[in-house]
Design a protein around this nucleic acid. Structure first.
Length: 417
RNA sequence: GAGGGCGUAGCUCAGUUGGCAGAGCACAGGGUUGUGGCCCCUGAGGCCGUGGGUUCGAGCCCCAUCGCUCUCCCCA
C-alpha cells in the first residue's frame, strides 16, 4: 500500500461538506468587505520567499520544500501566501489600475515541520491582503473582517490580541533597550533565547520557558518606545476597533514569526483548542511591496488556518448531512432502461438524483435511498411499467402515491410547496 | 531537532501465567415473493505493522526496523 506523505492529509467525502461550508462562508464574508479572489501558484521561485519572508526566519531556514527543477532553478512550495500575492500584484501592475487593492486567496501552504495536533505539512489557509492604504481604520476593518469570518462559521471562545511592533526606526531603538535588559538577566534565559539575543531578541518576548517568561514580565515594552507617528497610528487602530465593538486584549509582548511586520500585529486565538493555538493572525507590512519591486505603499493582511477552524466545529450538524432529492429504484431487468432515462430526465429538470444500476432487491434499494438521505424514492417495477406510471414514496412520512409518468414533474414540484 | 504513547477486521478497541483470532459499530444476505430507519438471525471480512530471535508452540517474551500519534520548539 502506498500511503500519504507524512504531515499531509486527505479530506474525505465525510468531511468535505464541512470543509466547503467553511470556505464558502469565508468567501461570502470577504466579498462583503470588498475583497476579490486571486489564485496564485503553489510554487514560486525560492528567491521570492527568501526576500519576502526573510533569510533568517525559521520558515526559510528549515521549513521550506525547496528543490531544483530540471532547468537548474531553485523552486519552493509556498510556506505562506502573502509573498506570492504581492509578487503577482507587482508583476501585473495591479496597483496602477487601482490604488487600493483588496485581495484574498484560499489554498494549500507547505511547511516541513514536525506534525502534531492542528499542525500539518500541507495545510489550507485563507489569506487576505489590503494594499495601498495605511489609515488605521483599515487595520481595524481587517481585524473585524477576520472576526466576522470566524463568527460566521460559528467558532466560539475566540480571543483577539493586538499589539504594535512599531516601524523600523522605533523598533531598532527598542531592540537595543530590550537587549540591554535581557543581558542583565542572561543566566535566567533559556539556551534558545541566549543564542538569539544578538540576532532576534524580540523572540524572547513570547518564549514559553519558565525562566524567560518571568524575566520578560518586567522587560521594557515596545509600546513605550513607539515614535509619534506609530503611537498615533496604534491609537487610531484601537479607536477603530472600539467603534466597531470588537473586543480585544492588548498584548504588548506579542511578536510574530515573520520578519516583515510593522506597526499593527494581531492574533486570534481559539481558547477551546487549548495551548495557545492561533487560528488566525496577521499584521501590517510597510516595506514588503517595495522590496519585491513594487511601489512604496504598505499593506495589511491576515491568515486563517482552515484545519484549525474546523477543529473547533461540532461534528454532528444537520447542515452537513448527506441528502439528495430523489432516489430511483429499478426492480428487475425490464425497468432498467426506463429508470436510466428517468434519472437523466429528473436531473435535467433540476433535481439531485441518485440510483443504483445493477439489480438489487427493493429492500436494498430502500436501504441505499436511506443512506444517501433521499427525500423521496421513485419505485419502478413491472406493475408501474405496465401502467406507464411510477410509485413515489416520501421517505419521512412513508406516504406513497402512484403517479402517471407524464405527470411526474408536476407531482414532484407541487408536493414540495 | 528533543521526549512520551500506540500499531490486532473498513472503524473503535478487547485479548488472562505463551495454548484454535474476539466484541461493538459499519458492510452483505435473510426474517417480509415489491418497501428504509428499530428489532432478531446468518454471513463475509485478519501475513495480529515488518524482519529476525527464544520456544514443542508467540498477538503476547527479546532484538531490530518502519509507520502513526501527541508534547516541547515554532506557528496557521
Amino acid at each position: 500500500m502506498i500511503t500519504l506523505v507524512k504531515g499531509f492529509h486527505d479530506i474525505l467525502p465525510e468531511e468535505s461538506s464541512r470543509w466547503s461550508f467553511v470556505t464558502e462562508s469565508a468567501r461570502w464574508c470577504l466579498k462583503k468587505y470588498g475583497y476579490r479572489e486571486i489564485i496564485t501558484p503553489i510554487m514560486e521561485k525560492t528567491e521570492l520567499f527568501v526576500r519576502g519572508i526573510g533569510q533568517v526566519t525559521d520558515i526559510v531556514e528549515k521549513e521550506m520544500y525547496t528543490f531544483q527543477d530540471l532547468g537548474g532553478e531553485s523552486l519552493s512550495l509556498r510556506p505562506e501566501a502573502t509573498a506570492g500575492i504581492l509578487r503577482s500584484v507587482v508583476e501585473h501592475s495591479l496597483l496602477r489600475k487601482e490604488p487600493v487593492l483588496k485581495l484574498f486567496t484560499i489554498g494549500p501552504m507547505f511547511r516541513r515541520e514536525r506534525p502534531s495536533k492542528g499542525r500539518f505539512r500541507q495545510f489550507f489557509q485563507l489569506n487576505a491582503e489590503a494594499l495601498g492604504d495605511d489609515d488605521p481604520f483599515i487595520d481595524a476593518e481587517t481585524i473585524a473582517c477576520a472576526c466576522s469570518i470566524l463568527e460566521s462559521i460559528g467558532a466560539k471562545g475566540l480571543l483577539v490580541e493586538v499589539n504594535s511592533v512599531g516601524c523600523k526606526t522605533c523598533r531598532n531603538v527598542y531592540r537595543v533597550e530590550l537587549k540591554k535588559y535581557l543581558e542583565k538577566h542572561l543566566d535566567g534565559l533559556c539556551q534558545d533565547c541566549q543564542r538569539r539575543l544578538n540576532t532576534n531578541p524580540l523572540r524572547s518576548l513570547d518564549c514559553k520557558a519558565h525562566g524567560c517568561s518571568e524575566i520578560v514580565k518586567s522587560a521594557p515594552l515596545i509600546v513605550d518606545y513607539l515614535d509619534e507617528p506609530c503611537r498615533e497610528h496604534f491609537s487610531g487602530v484601537r479607536r477603530g476597533l472600539d467603534l466597531l465593538n470588537i473586543s480585544y486584549h492588548l498584548e504588548p509582548r506579542m511578536v510574530r514569526g515573520l520578519d516583515y511586520y510593522s506597526r499593527t500585529a494581531f492574533e486570534i486565538i481559539d481558547t477551546d483548542l487549548g495551548n495557545t493555538k492561533a487560528v488566525g493572525g496577521g499584521g501590517r507590512y510597510d516595506t514588503l511591496l517595495a522590496e519585491l519591486g513594487g511601489p512604496e505603499v504598505s499593506g495589511i493582511g491576515f491568515a486563517i488556518g482552515i484545519e484549525r477552524l474546523l477543529m473547533g466545529l461540532r461534528d454532528e450538524d444537520e447542515r452537513f448531512a448527506r441528502n439528495v432529492d430523489i432516489y430511483v429504484a429499478a426492480l428487475g431487468e425490464p425497468c432498467r432502461e426506463t429508470c436510466h432515462m428517468l434519472v437523466d430526465f429528473l436531473r435535467k429538470n433540476g433535481f439531485t438524483v441518485e440510483t443504483r444500476y445493477s439489480s438489487y432487491s427493493l429492500k436494498s434499494h430502500m436501504k441505499q435511498a436511506d443512506r444517501v438521505g433521499a427525500q423521496k424514492t421513485i419505485i419502478v417495477g413491472s406493475d408501474e411499467l405496465e401502467n406507464q406510471s411510477v410509485t413515489v414514496r416520501d421517505m419521512s412520512t412513508r406516504n406513497q402515491a402512484i403517479v402517471p409518468m407524464d405527470d411526474i414533474l408536476t407531482f414532484l414540484r407541487g408536493d414540495g410547496d
